Amino acid sequence: MASLEVSGLSVGYGPVRALRDVSLRVPPGAVVAVLGGNGAGKSTLLRAISRTLRFHRGAATGGAVVFDGRALDRMNAAQVVAAGVVQVPEGRQVFARMTVGDNLRAGALGARGGRKENAAALARVHELFPVLAERAHQRAGLLSGGEQQMLALGRALMARPRLLLLDEPSLGLAPLMAARIAETVREINATGTSVLLVEQNAALALRLASIAYVLDVGEVALSGPADELAASDEVRRRYLGVVDETAAEDAVRAEAVAPTLRRWTP
């Protein structure tokens, strides 16, 4: 297993500075969470690592990104995938007009290995997400939001990543589906895949991660063990929405369960 080292990373979109001197580390086999509000620079961080910044008219202006001893900032996006670093973008971004099966096959295009490895990866994806096997011939755009998130994860896994970059995987999902995706992330990590998780749902992220960083206006404001950040007054107030210790612990530990709503009648 390999570690990711981000050192002094600065990123700009033209004259706008999105990240300033950001440093973080993802140890081998770990889940590391990045928290922060809208505009904090979380997605920009993942784009800088995956080398997709230029597709968003951004550019790194300083710093270094190293994975397994190799400088990712000297590679293009396809080479980063081949090196074992794969991103699941915010909003899922599945190929809506292609079938579920074709979306998964597309995920394997940049991967190392041949048919045998691809078949094994597909079997693993179907094991994690049986619904994708059942709907292999259905257009991806007809899937529900939760199923599309499963497809986006499955497509990334087809590239057999050693480091998975997840950008807001619970965004727009019902609490029960978000909890299911979180459990799948645990299973993926248990097989040895490291995870860098960008997530606005701080309670979910802190349950999954062993280490967490908080970005604020493009800079690292806080960092440390996830359980220590969960106990931080600032994190509780700003990201968990609670102010007392008992409520904070409940927010971090409780499993998300969708409430049962009844139709209102006059």
Rank of each mutant, 00 (worst) to 15 (best):
E249I: 12
Q138Y: 11
E245I: 12
G154F: 07
S223G: 11
L208C: 00
H137S: 14
N189M: 06
N201E: 01
R155W: 05
V235P: 02
N189K: 07
V235M: 00
I188R: 10
Y213Q: 01
A230Y: 00
A247L: 13
L173S: 12
T246C: 08
V217I: 15
L240A: 05
G146F: 05
S170P: 01
L171M: 15
Y213G: 09
L151H: 06
R236C: 05
Y239E: 01
M150P: 03
E219N: 11
S223W: 13
E147W: 10
E199G: 08
M177S: 03
A230V: 08
G154E: 00
L215F: 04
T193A: 08
E228P: 08
A231V: 11
G172C: 06
E187F: 02
V214L: 13
S194P: 04
E219H: 12
P225Y: 08
A248V: 11
L240R: 00
D250I: 14
F129N: 04
G218F: 00
I188D: 00
I181Q: 07
G141I: 04
D250G: 12
L163H: 02
V217G: 10
A174Q: 10
L222R: 11
N201R: 10
M177V: 15
E134K: 14
R207L: 11
Y213S: 06
E134S: 03
D244A: 00
L164C: 10
G141R: 04
A251F: 07
A212Q: 01
E245C: 04
A209W: 05
A178C: 01
E183S: 15
A159M: 07
V220Q: 06
P130K: 09
R186D: 07
L173V: 01
Q138G: 06
L215P: 06
R237N: 13
P169H: 09
E249R: 15
L215Q: 04
L153Q: 09
E234Q: 12
S232Y: 05
V185Y: 10
E199L: 02
E234N: 11
A179W: 10
V185H: 07
A190W: 00
A140W: 05
L240N: 05
I211G: 13
N201M: 04
D216R: 14
I181F: 02
A190I: 11
Q200E: 10
A212M: 03
Q148H: 05
A190C: 09
D216C: 13
L132Q: 08
E134P: 03
S144H: 06
P175I: 08
V195Y: 02
I181W: 09
S232R: 13
G224E: 01
R238V: 12
D250R: 15
V198N: 03
A231S: 12
R186N: 10
L128M: 06
D167C: 06
D167H: 07
E228V: 14
A203W: 05
G145V: 09
D233P: 15
A136D: 13
A182S: 14
L157Y: 09
A140Y: 07
V217D: 12
D233C: 11
E228K: 14
I211D: 15
P169N: 03
E187C: 04
E168D: 06
R180N: 09
P225G: 12
R207Y: 01
M158H: 08
M177L: 15
S144I: 00
S144T: 12
A159L: 02
R207C: 03
L171G: 10
T193C: 14
L196T: 09
G241I: 06
P130M: 04
E187R: 14
E228G: 01
R207S: 14
V195R: 01
R186G: 09
